[in-house]
Design a protein around this nucleic acid. Structure first.
Length: 504
DNA sequence: TTCCGACAGTGGGGTCGCAAT
DNA sequence: ATTGCGACCCCACTATCGGAA
């Protein structure tokens, strides 16, 4: 039997990892712990080092951590004990039980350990190391090439598990219909005309970017269909329409990638909120289905009838897709090398209420979990001139800087109506400038919010707006980010709430 | 020597289920 | 019946490191 690992060892490593900025040094520190960890604990330790819990979220947020016992003078927790408590937390829905479990756990933790556990439970380890470093460290510790471990992680749908396998049995991880894999992601471009393949005149496929939720659909050898989200949650019971599409296909085993969305009867896209409400609910699905039916748009085939297609070029996977899936369940797409045709397809997709397009390289394999250039999303961008109403103090690397700005549009009677916040798009220089600027405009404080004289105009980019119960104008910005501060405009020249609403 | 891909961090909007009140 | 928390759906952008070019 190997010695149990004390929690303090993990805390110490986390501190050391956070103390250096060198990625190489972080990797070596993590690799060393992985090497010294007994096989039974590798998955847990690996998961923690990537800032996550092997159990997933366990029902503990900031509020549950507000009132905790004083730290223990002599800490005694082991990794195994903490892991058991996390499993117990995940296994109960009672808040009373949760509070008791947390009190017992934190009461046995030292001060540094309490701090670490708090950050781990909140998913905010902030040690400059998550899955990227764990991947490199796992490869180093197990002496396997990084691409090999990356692939195992994608096929297992779980990097810490892949690290455990690499360090123990070393067996090859394979695609198994029924087990979710990490989905392929897309990079982005501002305009169709900036996508490299289209600039070069290379043939590509443009797929309509549907504003729904990502679905990975499996049919296992027993004929059982399972549906997973982008984060690999099983939502099979919530989306019977998707299950039926898979069941109707002429294949014994399957892995499909696609999107599920609620459409209007005429085929136009419903707002994302409606698809979200429909797919978030597991109760009275039949009634929801009646009111808000889902349409399945398949756009890739990763496996069919025992044949893995992940390493095939997209051109080949697409041939299989066209053969296997009826047009009514395929995402509308266009194969072209012509910029003009691509632009027209993009414009039509947007006119149909969709988000935009995803441009796909015909030569690329399915590289799960990577935001390479093989897939590039393009969406229209709207801009608004809004007034800054207040600013919030930042955290982490933004501590001591005014960060998140509250945004207002001009109301009917000249008052300002808050429509959202943003912290995005600010370079360090901008953060420094706005901190000074808004402190000079300060009119009062409430907690971490600094209210300001509403005179500063800022140009904001958004994907669109959505209905809101939170904000007084009934609308909220979607994906707002700062483009630039406008020194040339006064608050009277800002956009109106009507202009904002018109983006919906 | 410069460039660029991958990553980590910093947070935004909404919706639902559920325990506690 | 309400309320507030927590999980999870959608997500953009900048700074930084270190290998590629």
């Amino acid at each position: 039997m190997s010695e149990p690992i004390p929690l303090s060892r993990v805390v110490e490593v986390s501190r050391a990892v956070g103390a250096t900025r060198s990625r190489t040094a972080k990797t070596e520190l993590v690799a060393q712990v992985l090497r010294e960890t007994p096989p039974a604990q590798v998955r847990t330790v690996a998961s923690w080092l990537a800032g996550a819990l092997p159990q997933g979220r366990v029902g503990v947020g900031w509020r549950s951590l507000a009132d905790l016992p004083a730290p223990a003078a002599t800490p005694s927790l082991t990794v195994g004990e903490v892991d058991d408590t996390l499993s117990a937390l995940a296994g109960t829905t009672s808040r009373t039980t949760r509070t008791q479990l947390l009190a017992d756990l934190f009461g046995r933790a030292g001060e540094d350990e309490q701090d670490y556990l708090r950050r781990l439970l909140l998913g905010e380890v902030r040690q400059g190391s998550l899955e990227g470093v764990l991947l490199a460290a796992g490869a180093l510790a197990a002496d396997v090439p990084e691409p090999t471990l990356r692939r195992a992680a994608m096929l297992a749908g779980d990097l810490p598990l892949a690290v455990e396998i690499a360090l123990t049995s070393g067996e090859e991880v394979r695609l198994e219909p029924g087990r979710a894999i990490q989905p392929m992601l897309a990079g982005s471009a501002a305009e169709i005309e900036e996508v490299p393949q289209l600039v070069a005149g290379t043939p590509v496929v443009l797929d309509t970017k549907v504003d729904g939720i990502r679905v990975q659909v499996h049919k296992d050898p027993a004929g059982r269909v399972r549906v997973y989200t982008r984060s690999l949650d099983d939502i099979t019971e919530r989306v019977p329409e998707v299950v039926e599409v898979a069941e109707a296909l002429d294949a014994t085993t399957l892995v499909l990638d696609g999107e599920a969305i609620a459409l209007h009867p005429d085929g136009r896209a419903r707002p994302f909120q409606e698809t979200g409400a429909r797919t978030a609910s597991s109760r009275s699905v039949e009634a929801l289905r009646e009111a808000t039916p889902l349409t399945t748009f398949v756009f890739d085939v990763l496996h069919v009838d025992g044949r893995d297609l992940l390493d095939e070029p997209y051109a080949t996977r697409r041939e299989v897709l066209l053969e296997l899936v009826p047009e009514s369940s395929r995402v509308p797409g266009l194969l072209t090398s012509d910029q003009g045709e691509a632009r027209r397809f993009f414009d039509e997709a947007v006119a149909s209420g969709h988000e935009g397009v995803v441009v796909k390289d015909l030569d690329a394999p399915y590289a799960a979990g990577r935001r390479g250039s093989a897939w590039t999303k393009v969406k229209p961008r709207h801009t608004l001139d809004l007034v800054v109403l207040a600013v919030e103090w930042g955290s982490g690397r933004r501590r001591g800087l005014l960060s998140n700005i509250h945004l207002g549009a001009k109301g009917e009677d000249g008052e300002l109506v808050m429509v959202g916040k943003t912290f995005k798009g600010m370079a360090d220089e901008t953060l420094a400038w706005q901190t000074e600027r808004f402190l000079a405009l300060e009119t009062g404080r409430e907690g971490h919010v600094v209210h300001v004289d509403p005179v500063q105009v800022v140009e904001i980019a958004v994907d669109g707006v959505q209905t809101s119960r939170r904000y007084p104008g009934g609308v909220a910005l979607r994906f707002a980010r700062v483009l630039r501060y406008r020194e040339d405009k006064t608050a009277e020249q800002a956009d109106t709430i009507e202009t904002v609403r018109a983006l919906g």
